[in-house]
C-alpha cells in the first residue's frame, strides 16, 4: 500500500523508480527525502519513474511540485517518466502537465537531460 523507492544511475541521471501510493502520510515524505538524498550526493539530474504509482492525492501532487522546484533551485532538472492514466489526468486537471517535462520512454528521457 505504501510507497517504495528504488534508485539507479543511468548516464549521469538518477532514476527514482516509485511504486505504490503517493498520499499524505504515505509516499509524500518518502519522495521529499529521496530527492534531498540525491541532491546531497551531488546529483541534480533526476528522473521520477511513476509507472507503478497507481494513486496520488493532492498532497502527493504538491510533493511532486515541491521536488520540481527544489531541484530547479539547486540548478538541476527533474523530469517525470511513465505516467499512469490517473496521474496523467490529475496533472492535466491541475494544469501541471505542461509545467513538468513528462516523458514516456526512458532512453529518450535520459538523453533529454542537459550534458
Amino acid at each position: 500500500m505504501s510507497m517504495k523507492v528504488q534508485t539507479r544511475q543511468v548516464d549521469g541521471v538518477t532514476i527514482l523508480d516509485l511504486s505504490g501510493r503517493i498520499t499524505l502520510g504515505e509516499g509524500s515524505v518518502t519522495i521529499r527525502d529521496a530527492v534531498r538524498d540525491v541532491l546531497a550526493k551531488g546529483s541534480n539530474k533526476i528522473l521520477l519513474n511513476l509507472g507503478d504509482v497507481n494513486y496520488i492525492d493532492s498532497s502527493g501532487i504538491g510533493e511532486l511540485v515541491s521536488a520540481f522546484t527544489t531541484v530547479k533551485n539547486a540548478g538541476g532538472e527533474l523530469k517525470l517518466l511513465n505516467l499512469t492514466k490517473k496521474v496523467h489526468d490529475l496533472l492535466q486537471i491541475t494544469k501541471l502537465y505542461t509545467v513538468f517535462d513528462v516523458k514516456d520512454d526512458e532512453a529518450s528521457a535520459i538523453s533529454s537531460f542537459s550534458k
Binding site: S59, I61, T94
Partner: peptide
Amino acid sequence: DPLAPENILRGSGRGIFL
C-alpha cells in the same frame, strides 16, 4: 486559485479544487 500562475508551483492548496 491553484491554477493561477502565481500559485501553480505551490506545494499545497489543491484539495478543494479537486
